[in-house]
Design a protein around this nucleic acid. Structure first.
Lengths: 310, 310
DNA sequence: GACCGAGTATAAGTCATGGTGATGGAAGAA
DNA sequence: TTCTTCCATCACCATGACTTATACTCGGTC
């Protein structure tokens, strides 16, 4: 399609003809406030003819006289007062908008939708959430717990702003920063006298296809183990319970295996280190002050806290 | 004072930096509505680069990103949605303003402040007022009755929009049109057997200095009468009553002298024609549709009505 | 009544702005 | 891959907005 200057879209022309510059409203407001073109021009830092022309243009665009002569003065007409009311409303609305935008830019307001895998939600981030809420009370924080894959998809679909997942996505419009490196250990049934799993052991693991499972499989392989999987679950609590019941062996982060409710259940038998999984904070490329503030807290906590991996 | 371009008023600069063109808001709205720069540009009748630049400028002025990349699309950010809300509010407010202004321009709405001398309010204009209210129900009509001199002053002071007074003012920024020529007759006490006043008659007249009085004095002089004034009043009812009580002679328009409440009072004795006074509609030079509509009704009534002067 | 100061409009020139068309890059589809 | 879609960037040009200088109009003054 071509755009010709000489034959513009007529309805667009009609539309445009009535739209003017907000500056003109500011001019009108100042002229009304100071009751005079000359004074207003001086206050606004423009020449008097500039004001005169600008307001004449506004009158043309609105199709009504805004001023009527009163000696050598010009006085607002009724119509002018109507337009003035509009101007003051619009300009103060704009100022309010600016304030809100500034608050958002500083990360002090708005909506922040965070997704995290269950391990993160259980052991790593509750303290971060608490502190973020304290520091940014105007931010509406919404939390989602799901799998890494699902969370990343929802981040990409603009349904979430920040996700804490396992492993960085190979995607150029997502940015990732590591928050935590979490060692994963083999755990066996409490009754087992072995510290390492037998070759014919049954395994209770994260589901095939999950990111943590991929990391675990690689780690087990490096230990010479090809696990026979008896049960799969995304829920680490389920895995721990199954092992506690003697159903097989598993691979878990330490804090999960030592979960408090384990006080009642028998303690799992800890085996060798398998691998580390990396918990990363992922967000879209576009900068968002709320996202960055949350992520900064998460990283800071990691550095401050005594090493949770031992 | 001189205006230098290189050293503008800094606060005015800061102010101006944040003010943009309403067109940019319309662009934003259309992009949001059609979800795409290219489609919006086509709908708006401008080129796609024009839109792209215009919205980039808007982002700069507001200091926040309005869009974030989503594949080859651009998607509104939260901030963008805030600005969009502002845009829709401002543009619809503007549309509403336009409607009100149009109504005013057509004389269908607004405020109309009319002043009239008592004779006009009593005998000439009630019907006009009734019909105007019927035809322009949205116009807020406010009425003031006072002397010609006072009304003209208030018209000049922008406290009234239209006045019906005696005699046109010699003033270039007021416009006057005659509505009615009203004959003035001598009236004597009911008891009098004379049809013309005796040379030693007492007179009861409009106050010296009033316009009607000036007209009357001139008329009486042409009849060879230099009236000895016993009582003055702006109120023609008062004049009529005093004559009815036999206090003296007066000069009045016919309808006043024949006022209905005169049914109880004795009828005045009508004397010779003295002069005519001219009732004119006066308004400021600046055009005002409401004023002109009212005045048109007043003139029309005059032409339609059977001659009230006989 | 001519003159002057105040307040605004108009004129002519300059620079900024916003437009156009052409082109380029990046992402999704074939 | 190549094509298509969508937006950004570029160079150029028309328009618009601002500048200074000047004219006009009104009200006050000698």
């Amino acid at each position: 399609m071509t755009y010709t200057r000489s034959v513009p879209n007529p309805e667009a022309l009609a539309l445009d003809a009535g739209l003017f510059h907000l500056r003109q409203l500011a001019y009108l407001r100042e002229v009304a406030r100071l009751d005079g073109f000359t004074r207003a021009a001086e206050a606004l830092g423009v020449s008097q003819p500039a004001l005169s022309q600008s307001l004449a243009d506004l009158e043309r665009r609105l199709g009504v006289p805004l001023f009527e002569p009163d000696g050598r003065h010009r006085r607002l007409t009724d119509e002018g007062r109507e337009v003035l009311a509009f101007a003051e409303r619009a300009l103060s609305d704009l100022a309010a908008l600016r304030e809100r935008l500034d608050a958002r830019r500083r990360g002090e307001a708005g909506l922040l939708r965070v997704g995290m895998i269950d391990a993160a939600s259980l052991y790593v981030l509750p303290e971060v959430i608490r502190r973020y809420r304290l520091q940014h009370p105007e931010v509406e924080l919404s939390l989602v717990v799901d799998t890494s894959t699902e969370l990343t998809a929802r981040l990409r679909a603009f349904e979430l702003d920040l996700v804490f997942v396992v492993g960085a996505p190979a995607d150029s419009d997502l940015r990732a920063d590591e928050v935590l490196r979490e060692p994963l250990y083999v755990f066996g049934p409490p009754a087992s006298r072995l510290r390492t799993p037998p070759a014919d052991a049954d395994w209770v693991l994260y589901p095939a296809g999950s990111r943590t499972r991929a990391v675990i499989d690689a780690g087990l392989a490096s230990l010479g183990i090809a696990p026979r999987v008896a049960l799969e679950s995304h829920n680490p609590e389920v895995l721990r319970q199954m092992v506690a019941l003697g159903l097989g062996w598993t691979v878990l982060p330490l804090p999960v295996a030592e979960e408090r409710s384990a006080g009642r259940a028998p303690r799992l038998r800890q085996g060798p280190l398998v691998t580390e999984r990396s918990l990363v904070g992922v967000r879209r490329r576009a900068e968002n002050a709320r996202v960055e503030a949350f992520l900064a807290l998460a990283r800071e906590r990691h550095e401050d806290a005594p090493d949770t991996s031992k």
